[in-house]
Simulated assay, not measured.
Amino acid sequence: MFKPLASAYSSELTAYLHRSQGLIPINKGNFFPLFWKAWITSFRSELVRKSFEATGVVPANADIILKRFNNHTSNGDESSSSEPQGDGSSWKQLRHLIDNAMKDKAEKPSQKLSAAMHSLQVQNELLHHKIDGLRSALTTKKKHQKKSKPLDLQQRKEYHSGGVCWSPRKVREARARESVKQKEKEAEKLYKAESKQLKAAAALYKKKMA
């Protein structure tokens, strides 16, 4: 019943602030009128009956509450047994497993095992953080390794004062010129390689004919 009351009171506060457009502050004198409206809205006979039935008060039914605990326990057991434990598990989960596996938690071997597991879990989490940081640094380094060449936008000597804004046409022309230059360089490399092969073949032919 208190959750509907809290929701109704929040709605009344919001409506009051909207009506006053935030110009009038809420003081002690405004509390009871707003609270009384929320009380009338939430504490209705049908809601009271449903709340009593949901909690097993009227009619008396203790199994309603017990079923909730039983379902929660069974679901928790299933999830703990089905999910993999160890790497990635939190310390609370590991501590729960240790407590269930040990009969006497006050014995020194039990305490040593618990401390060792806690240390391993902390080291595991630190390693995970370190790996994530290294991956991020590697990604950033790869981005920095990509070298970009400036476009040759200015073809003739011109006087510019301050910053210069280039039109899209100028940028397209500069990219086209850069593409032509790259193709010419590749063609020149290919020509040199072919010339070298031809010279080597000619020299070999001369040796055979001599």
Rank of each mutant, 00 (worst) to 15 (best):
N27L: 15
A54D: 08
S11I: 06
W166T: 01
L5W: 00
Q93A: 14
G56K: 00
A202M: 12
L94W: 00
A200G: 05
S114H: 07
P4M: 00
K157N: 05
V57N: 01
A62H: 10
I64R: 07
A193V: 09
H72D: 09
V48F: 10
Q182L: 09
S81G: 08
P4I: 01
K149L: 13
E188F: 03
L97N: 03
I98H: 07
E184D: 07
A60R: 12
R175M: 01
I24K: 13
K105W: 10
S89D: 02
L134Q: 05
D104N: 10
A38G: 02
F69A: 08
G88N: 03
T139G: 11
K189A: 06
Q123R: 14
K149Y: 15
V48R: 09
I24S: 12
P4Y: 01
A203K: 10
P109I: 03
M117V: 10
K50I: 06
L134N: 11
K183Q: 15
K103Q: 06
A193P: 02
N124T: 09
L127H: 11
W166L: 13
A62I: 09
R175Y: 00
K183S: 01
S10D: 04
S81M: 13
S161N: 12
L198Y: 14
K92E: 11
L204F: 14
L113F: 12
K146M: 13
R44K: 10
L138Y: 14
A176E: 15
F32R: 09
I40L: 08
T139N: 13
P109T: 01
Q182P: 04
D99A: 10
P168C: 05
D77F: 06
S45H: 14
P4D: 02
L198T: 07
K183V: 03
A115N: 07
V164R: 04
H129K: 12
A54Y: 07
G86I: 00
G88P: 01
H118Y: 08
A203F: 07
L138D: 15
S80W: 02
F43L: 06
H18R: 10
H118I: 04
D104M: 00
T55C: 10
S42T: 01
S161E: 09
L134P: 08
A193R: 12
A203P: 02
L151W: 02
H160R: 11
K112T: 04
S79W: 00
D87Q: 13
R44Y: 07
D104I: 04
E186W: 12
R169Y: 11
H96M: 09
E184T: 02
K143W: 06
A115D: 06
L134I: 06
G163M: 08
G22V: 01
T140I: 09
P25S: 00
A193C: 01
H72G: 08
S195Q: 10
V171C: 02
